[in-house]
Write a protein that binds this DNA or RNA. Structure first.
Lengths: 206, 206
DNA sequence: ATTATAATTGAACGTCGATCAATTGATCGT
DNA sequence: ACGATCAATTGATCGACGTTCAATTATAAT
């Protein structure tokens, strides 16, 4: 077709990325296809490979965008949070996964295939963690040092584990309900333990 | 080739399953192929489909076997545990994932494709959870009622979240170390909180 | 206008999961 | 012993996938 002048390389990247995001949201990682993305943007497979190297590169870029939107959602929810910002954080974390199940799952289904994530994308993906570190430090009234960083990442892991069980349906399959409340309870317990001086991020005692 | 009398249907199932497990351990879900499994057992694709319906069925069966081996590993570790059985459980949980990264990951990368898991396989998969419920009840000196069941599953989710970050490499990528100790710390905090009478499995207070 | 450079195409290749008519081997009645 | 019946097994065939790359086309430079 020769639409060379229609879009700059950056525009083309955005165009493909956006169509890829939509397809991922519609079909999930297992239904994702570079050919379908190409068809939707009116280019051909070759162009996708020219811009993103290979399908992994495109999926990685889509997943990075998902992280970015996710972090946006957390910030938006925090902006309207009253006192309990930790609860708002957990709530928004689950809400995003629930609202975007395919995109959320794609992040964690792509690990076995993924090559190294480009540095500038790692930066974007780290935003979510940085938000949690900041809020955990705030909740504890402490500076965000290494120990707080580890604790915050551990709490993300805790909530992630619950969220993964929810999205996969295994939590419901076990006859369980209100996983969000349960996850929040775990987070509260850990914050309370750290507040009462146990350290929290160090190695296990005994 | 017509090896019809060489194996009964059950033997054939085991044969394919075992070769499938080996391939999954070697190549991971992304490198898994029914054709390769067929080649390894000396049958053809058609036979695989005849026995397992489709590739998803085979992968699901492999993953169920992984759960079974995993539960075996937990029990084996518990059998030689002294006082701290919870620590033994967390340790064995991580150890299995570390020793079988591809098989472990396949479980959680297959969600987007998986159809409903057959009932008898769900039974096997539930064994891991049952072990944890039993041990959590034991650690708390309480009968394994619904609240304990929910708490145990929540602690599994907590450890799973940490384990997932470890296997995907994102924990190390964040400059963190000793995730196993961190996960155990979270579990200890929750058990301590529940021991001191906060309930633990109910909805969040406030 | 001509050349050089870059972007875009799309046919070709190998591999995948799935299907199903044809074949083969086992089983059984006679 | 033998032909009929039935189930297991084969493998060619299909459509779709990701990847490659020679050929083509549009832009930029001279």
């Amino acid at each position: 077709m020769g639409r060379r002048s229609d879009h700059s390389r950056a525009e083309l990247r955005d165009l493909i990325l956006e169509a890829g995001e939509t397809l991922m949201a519609e079909a999930g990682l297992s239904g994702f296809s570079a050919r379908e993305v190409a068809k939707r943007v009116g280019y051909t497979i070759g162009t996708i490979h020219n811009v993103f190297g290979n399908v992994d590169g495109l999926v990685t870029a889509i997943n990075t965008r998902t992280f970015d939107l996710w972090a946006d959602a957390l910030e938006a929810r925090l902006a309207e949070a009253d006192t309990d910002r930790i609860a708002a954080l957990v709530e928004a974390y689950f809400a995003f996964a629930r609202a975007n199940p395919f995109r959320w799952s794609a992040i964690y289904e792509h690990v076995g295939v993924a090559e190294a994530t480009p540095a500038e994308q790692s930066e974007v993906r780290g935003r979510l963690t940085r938000i949690v570190v900041r809020e955990v430090a705030h909740a504890l009234g402490r500076p965000a040092d290494d120990a707080i960083g580890t604790l915050a990442r551990s709490l993300v892991a805790t909530v992630h584990g619950h969220c993964a069980f929810q999205v996969s349906g295994s939590w419901a399959a076990m006859g369980q309900r209100d996983i969000e409340g349960v996850a929040l309870a775990r987070v509260r317990e850990s914050l309370a333990a750290v507040r009462s001086g146990a350290g929290g991020a160090g190695p296990p005692r005994e």
